[in-house]
Design a protein around this nucleic acid. Sequence first.
DNA 1: TAGCTCGTTGGACAA
DNA 2: TTTGTCCAACGAGCT
Length: 470
Amino acid sequence: MTSPIILWFRRDLRLSDHPALTEAAASGRPVIPVFLHDEVVSSLGAAPKWRLGLSVAAHAKALSEKGARLILRRGRALECLADLVAETGAGAVWWTRAYDPDSIARDTEVKTALKQAGVDARSFPGHVLFEPWTVETGTGGYYRVYTPFWKAVRDRDVAEARPAPGRIPVPEGWPASDDLDDWHLGAAMRRGADVVGALVTVGEDAARGRLGAFIAEGIDNYDEARDFPARDGTSNLSENLTYGEISPVALWHAGRRAMQEGKRGAETFLKEVVWRDFAYHLVYHTPRITHANWRPEWDAFPWNTEATKAVTRWKRGRTGEPFVDAAMREMYVTGTMHNRARMIVASYLTKHLLSHWRIGQRWFEDCLIDWDPASNAMGWQWAAGSGPDATPYFRVFNPATQLEKFDPDGHYRRRWIAEGQAAPSATALSFFDAVPRSWGLAAAEAYPAPIVNLKEGRQTALDAYKARDF
DNA sequence: TAGCTCGTTGGACAA
DNA sequence: TTTGTCCAACGAGCT
């Protein structure tokens, strides 16, 4: 059989360690790489959509260097693929599996319809280390707690990452393709692409370089340095993992090798990679986690669901709480936020402001270039207390104490908060360049007083949590 | 099966 | 300044 294989790329924009591509290239049949601006892409937030555009461009370039093309189409996935099958005579449509509910709904529809039409519609692994149905508790259920999950997978064999195919067989002619620029994937990005663009690391080669640098310089001290937001102590690879520019398998083996070489922080790093898998494990087994309280009894909790002034100030980095504001500004300017800072702003929103985690989740979804449906849902529900984690309700992060502990020299604070500084840093000033004029912010203004007294806010939250009647 | 141990990331306060 | 204890109590997962 020599009919072409349509290789439908989604969040797997790489050539190496790509099981579907490897098998397609090895088949000898022509391969038609495709990326669709489909219903799932349409629903992305501003920053992830913009960042996706960069990734797609990089992937198209990488494919062109192999003599192939990335065909772009816009519309519902099933219709686009059915059209492409008809136009090219393709006998197969292959892709890398996704595990979030929206993607599963789309993929199920596609697979069913294509199979009915006699097309070899097939999905492959590649997005996670361990597919959700391959990890089971002793009684055959799914894991709800991370540590047992980690213990269940940490000693598993993971196949080595596969190199990119040396050659990708191409069809005799290429189907028509949209022009990526016409998709305007960055149109909703409020802050200038030039601001964030200078900070992103795009594409498979760059991601691999980033991993190499982290393994060489960062992983040894990762367990300690990762907690300090002003230090460059993390891998920063979430941005690349999100779009599949690098595979979790590549991270796994790099981490394992580092562990064998005695690098101290290697195991902590591996655990973080597995946390990402755990998030996909949860989203697969309990898809409601993306939009509803994982523990339904929390539906009775009196979250504030309104867009209050306090919520607006949280979004705009104007709470008067330096750690919270620095973090929210960091996210607005760079499209990322340090992990510890994510916990702190989430705790502040859901506890001190008693606002619903969905508000924060949506804002993150709009602002983060590394937005990921599984990790974000899990993280927000963990912070709020409604998630699959036995976090006691009295665990309330104190942003002031956290600042003392994890930013003792004030580097993070000064990096992002210009007000009150005689000579503000360029990064702190860049926030005021990035925000819309309608926000009416100026670096020369006084830094706002705290909108919530931390002690009172904590107590209000504790009282509300204690009074919950479930 | 019943019992046991433990739970990513904390805070406040006492000693 | 540092260290220990309590804040509650449940359910996951193991034995």
